[in-house]
Design a protein around this nucleic acid. Structure first.
Lengths: 141, 141
DNA sequence: CTTCACAATGTGTATATACACACAAAGGCC
DNA sequence: GGCCTTTGTGTGTATATACACATTGTGAAG
């Protein structure tokens, strides 16, 4: 029972790698990476996120988000308004960011559809819901 | 339907982050990381792995495994016998590696039990099995 | 006004991940 | 023997991730 094959961490990371590579192959040619898509998506849905707030929503270490934003800021897809160190920062997606996201959307949708189709939409929803529950419970501890 | 919240890549990566942090908190104090555990585990179960062979089994890019082995080799937990560039390499776990893995096992088991307990063993097995299927189908494409 | 704790952010360092590319050995073909 | 494909490995570069620590603004207590 307690072997490598059953390890929750290993198994989830393993499938995350494969799925990420699959999504990457579909959106890379549009200039953004699958890991950047949710950041842009969150900013497009609602402006004015703070760093800590957005990192919480993404389930990502705050300091990780700081680094992940760097390439997006450098390329002008995201703007960070605020004094930076010490002061609160307001994040917003730029017009260029919106355009990039829109361009990558067909590729993303194709990947998403193919992944979901493997198990079916219902099964997939159940798994996502269960995994979400795991994440929530683990963050309490 | 096609929003950030439903993205398969985002959701799986998200839960992978949380689970990894949880495992990390349990095994870090024993000197190894949750991402290194499966490598050591695979080598303990069977010696003589080649690079490509092991990376395939781990569902990891071959070049990623090369880098991930570096800290383990540096710390003397894993040995790579072979000419390296060009020639086939035989990987093996050292005695120090076996000891480190054994020391971390209680922490790992604790984390594993707690994660599995959230959904129950049956539910968890079903999810792992389904995700495994997704990984296999995606690698064909 | 000063100090002090808190809240929000960034940095140092290390590992994890992978695409594009480069390199070397082994074996078949001529 | 000399070429060439195939197989097995490593490197360059870039992003992703996070723990430990540092920094700065703000408001409350004195």
């Amino acid at each position: 029972m307690s072997s490598v094959e059953n390890c929750a961490c290993f198994n989830v990371r393993r499938v995350a790698r494969v799925i990420t590579q699959f999504f990457d192959a579909k959106v890379r040619c549009h200039g953004i990476r699958p890991t950047q898509t949710p950041i842009l998506g969150a900013l497009q849905a609602k402006d004015g996120w703070g760093m800590a707030e957005l990192s919480e929503w993404l389930g990502m270490e705050r300091t990780t988000l700081v680094r992940n934003l760097r390439p997006l800021q450098r390329d002008g897809l995201v703007r960070a308004n605020g004094s930076g160190r010490g002061g609160r920062v307001e994040l917003e997606i730029t017009q260029k960011g919106r355009t990039a996201l829109a361009k990558a959307l067909p590729g993303w949708r194709s990947a998403q559809n193919k992944v979901v189709a493997i198990l079916g939409e219902e099964r997939w929803s159940a798994i996502i819901s269960d995994l979400e529950q795991v994440a929530v419970k683990l963050k309490d501890q």
